[in-house]
């Protein structure tokens, strides 16, 4: 419908003091438009607040409820398989050592979020570079890089991560993050490559090439900004994926060392 297209351009903000019957005379840059759209999207705002709240809690709350692996709580008689939530432990306790689940969750947030965000970020960076180069240059470069990507994507990711975490790991969470990033980028690379394949034939790229813009600059300044939103979407999902993935690996006993709490710890502390 050609009539609805003007919607995003003419928000109430663009109304100056004088009545203005014309469309979109106030120009906004890409980020302003994105921010304005974002602000209007209730669910997105809710999600943002939730996420920022979790990050703030991860930073602040461990100071109030610190966790020490070597402090073992005094056992309660009828909580051998874990207690349900009660006034002392609002999330309940684990079985065995009866650790307070709330303290574990609060303290685990730091490492889990760091692993998730770090792995997703590094994965996105490596993936964007590899995918961008492959998609932009094509030919044998593309062929070589994509075969590597194919090989890595064909390997069962969780298996490889388990093996590496077990063989190299001493429960260091940084290693887990690196492993997730090292095996998470091929998916991003494939996505970015397909975006680049479409974008590199767009007229604005041809125009940039015609005035002599260098390849690096075309890749990073002209094409990448147009491919950013799918990359962001994929990376956001990857954050959640990595957090759950770390939980899997740790649940199976090969992830982060038990003395460092993560969100997987309540599932394995007995």
């Amino acid at each position: 419908m050609d009539t609805t297209r003007a919607t995003d351009l003419a928000g109430p903000e663009s109304a100056g003091p004088a009545p203005d019957y014309e469309v979109g005379l106030v120009s906004l840059n890409q980020w302003q438009i994105a921010w304005r759209r974002f602000r209007r999207h209730k669910l997105a705002m809710f999600g943002a607040f939730l996420f920022l709240g979790i990050v703030a809690a991860a930073i602040a709350l461990p100071f109030i409820w610190p966790f020490d692996f070597y402090t073992i709580p005094t056992p309660k008689p009828n909580c051998r398989i874990g207690c349900p939530p009660n006034p002392d432990n609002i999330f309940g306790t684990t079985g065995g050592l009866q650790r307070d689940v709330f303290t574990l969750v609060v303290n685990g947030a730091r490492v889990s979020l760091a692993i998730g965000l770090g792995a997703a970020l590094f994965g996105a960076i490596i993936g964007s570079i590899v995918g961008g180069v492959a998609g932009y240059f094509g030919g044998w470069v593309d062929n070589l890089l994509m075969r590597i990507v194919d090989a890595l994507l064909s390997l069962p990711l969780l298996f490889v991560i388990l093996v590496i975490a077990r063989f190299l790991g001493s429960g260091n969470w940084l290693l887990i993050m690196v492993v997730f990033a090292a095996f998470g980028w091929p998916g991003v690379a494939r996505l970015v490559r397909s975006l680049f394949l479409t974008l590199r034939n767009e007229v604005f790229v041809e125009a940039a090439r015609a005035v002599g813009v260098s390849s690096t600059r075309i890749i990073f300044r002209h094409i990448l900004p147009n491919a950013v939103s799918p990359i962001i979407v994929a990376s956001t999902l990857a954050v959640a994926g990595v957090i759950v993935g770390e939980a899997f690996v740790s649940f199976l006993g090969f992830g982060v060392d038990v003395t460092t709490p993560t969100w997987a710890t309540p599932s394995r502390t007995r």
Partner: peptide, 20 residues
Amino acid sequence: QAIPVLLGISLVTYFILLIA
């Protein structure tokens, strides 16, 4: 095209033997 991919897979797998 699958042949280089299979070779790549075997390399990664062999790498596991090396780090064992």
